[in-house]
Amino acid sequence: MRPCPEAGIASAVGPTPRAAPAARRGARGTRPSRAVRQAVRMPYFRTYDDAELHYRVLGPADSARPPLVCLAGGPGRDAAYLADLGGLARHRQLIVPDHRGTGASPAAADPARYAFPHLAADVEALRAHLGLERFALLGHDAGATVAQAYAAAHPERLTRLVLVCPGSRLQGELPDDAQEIFTSRMHEEWWPRASVAVQELAEASDLAQVRDLLYAAAPLAYGRWDEPQRAHAATEGEQLGPVPRAGFWQGVDEPTREALLAGLRRVDCPVLVVTGDRDGVVGMRAGELVAAAFPSAEVRPLHLVGHYPWVDEPDLFRPLVEEFLRAS
């Protein structure tokens, strides 16, 4: 079974029950808004349907660099897995929201609110809460799909857009190179067990069994299987929300998808797409398809890197993103 883009390794698991903007902020050299500087004391924001959602603020409050809003994937995974994105929080603030039903954010009263266009509307509410007229946005995995939906709806709000290891379901194609990458690593000692686990996940329903299988299959998502990767992978089973994950594409029909793609063609901010040549979850071709959906986007593949570049090679990932964010 090939891993499914935008659902991570957990894609094989079935749906188990379980403010007004201030004057321009976010341009290069400006200070974060007062709302951002005070966010640690106000870690919740009200979104368009009056739901109160949680977010975290990482990094120095006195940084002169504009903040970066970071969206987690999964879909339906707690944003804690992003950590500080390999040290990106050293010199700028990262604003990391918990999507509905994940982390400290409550479950959605209406399951339709888990669909990614609605999650993008939550991002717009967060922007207004923080008082950012324009800002830089990063999305990983399925979070990159939310980021694209936001860009399509609000292109004028973005200064930079970073898409890390995105899937290409929104683009209407699912390349098969993730399976090729996975198969190319069959000589590694973890591969036989991971291969069986990927197959068994298709039929697993017991939550404890699912978590064990996720960890067994996890090496396909990393460039290597050392202690940092093992520790990061060990958190996945507990962080996944089956209901938010199941609702991620709910109600997104073909006209909606085509309208979103049309919106992407109007995005004029710089776009960076990061891929990993050992990404056995979404592969590398998906990133190329995503980049092609924008008028102008740069694809930067990273060598010996999997689906979590900040875990595999933080000293490659961090400077790449920082250079892009600082570029004029």
Rank of each mutant, 00 (worst) to 15 (best):
M1P: 15
G8C: 13
G8P: 14
S11A: 15
A12L: 12
A12Q: 08
G14K: 09
P15L: 10
P17S: 06
R24M: 02
R28K: 11
G29N: 04
T30K: 02
P32V: 07
A35S: 10
R46M: 02
Y48F: 14
D49H: 03
D50F: 04
E52L: 11
H54M: 04
Y55C: 03
G59L: 04
S63P: 05
A64L: 14
A64F: 11
P66H: 03
L71N: 04
G74Q: 04
P75V: 00
A89I: 05
H91N: 13
D98M: 07
D98W: 04
R100L: 12
G101M: 10
S105I: 10
S105K: 08
P106L: 02
P111C: 10
R113W: 11
P117F: 02
L119H: 04
E124C: 09
A125S: 15
A125T: 06
A125K: 04
H129I: 02
H129F: 10
L130M: 13
L130W: 07
E133M: 11
A136W: 00
A136M: 01
D141P: 01
A142F: 04
A142L: 01
A144Q: 00
T145M: 08
V146T: 15
V146I: 14
Q148C: 14
Y150S: 06
Y150V: 05
Y150R: 08
A151S: 06
A153I: 06
P155T: 01
E156D: 12
R157K: 13
L158Q: 00
L158M: 00
R160P: 09
L163S: 09
C165W: 00
G167A: 09
E173T: 15
L174T: 14
P175Q: 04
D177Q: 08
A178V: 01
Q179P: 00
E180D: 14
F182C: 07
S184A: 15
H187F: 14
H187M: 12
P192F: 00
P192C: 03
A194E: 03
A197L: 02
V198M: 13
V198A: 11
Q199N: 08
L201N: 12
A208Q: 13
A216I: 05
A217E: 10
A221N: 10
Y222F: 15
Y222A: 07
R224G: 11
E227A: 14
A234Q: 07
T235E: 10
E238C: 03
Q239I: 00
Q239R: 15
Q239F: 09
R245K: 12
G247A: 12
G247L: 08
F248Q: 06
W249L: 15
W249D: 15
R257D: 07
L260A: 12
L261G: 05
A262F: 02
G263W: 01
L264W: 03
D268V: 11
V271C: 09
L272K: 09
L272H: 12
T275W: 08
D277W: 15
G280Y: 09
V281Q: 09
G283C: 10
A291Q: 05
A291R: 04
F294I: 00
A297T: 12
H303R: 15
V305C: 08
V305F: 01
H307W: 01
H307P: 04
P309H: 10
P309E: 09
W310F: 15
E313D: 11
D315N: 12
D315C: 11
F317R: 00
E323M: 05
L325H: 07
A327K: 06
S328G: 06
S328W: 01
